[in-house]
Amino acid sequence: MENKHVLITGATSGIGYELARLFAKDGYNLVLVARNEENLKHTAQEMERLNSAIHTHIIPADLFEKDAAQKIYDKTTQLGITINVLVNDAGQGEWGRFIKTDLEREIALVQLNIVSLISLTKFYLREMVERNEGKILQLASSVSKAPSPYLSVYAATKAFVLSFTEALIEELEDTEVTVTALRPEATDTDFFHKAKAENTVIYKEEDLYTPEEVAEAGYKGLMDGENVVIPGFKNKTQHAMNTIMPDSAIAANMHKKMESSTKENGREQSSHAASQRERKTINTERAGVNGDY
Rank of each mutant, 00 (worst) to 15 (best):
E104S: 13
Q78N: 01
E198W: 02
T180Y: 14
I8S: 00
R279E: 08
D224S: 14
A68E: 04
E213M: 14
K25W: 11
D89N: 12
E226W: 12
L40Q: 07
A68Y: 05
Q138T: 00
Y73I: 01
T82R: 06
G96H: 05
F98Q: 11
E185N: 14
V129H: 03
K145R: 15
D247S: 12
V179E: 04
G80F: 09
L86I: 02
T210K: 14
N265R: 09
L151H: 14
A274L: 11
A186R: 05
A34C: 08
E38D: 13
I136Q: 12
G93L: 10
E37R: 07
Y124V: 08
V228T: 09
A90R: 08
N36L: 07
W95H: 09
N199E: 14
T43L: 06
V129K: 04
T237L: 14
M47R: 04
S116W: 00
Q92C: 04
N84L: 06
A215R: 08
A274M: 06
Y73W: 01
H255T: 09
A53F: 02
Y154W: 04
L172F: 07
A197C: 05
N227D: 13
D207S: 04
S144D: 01
T237V: 14
V110R: 14
G266S: 10
R183D: 00
I81T: 07
E127D: 15
Y209G: 07
D62H: 13
G16D: 03
K234W: 11
V229D: 08
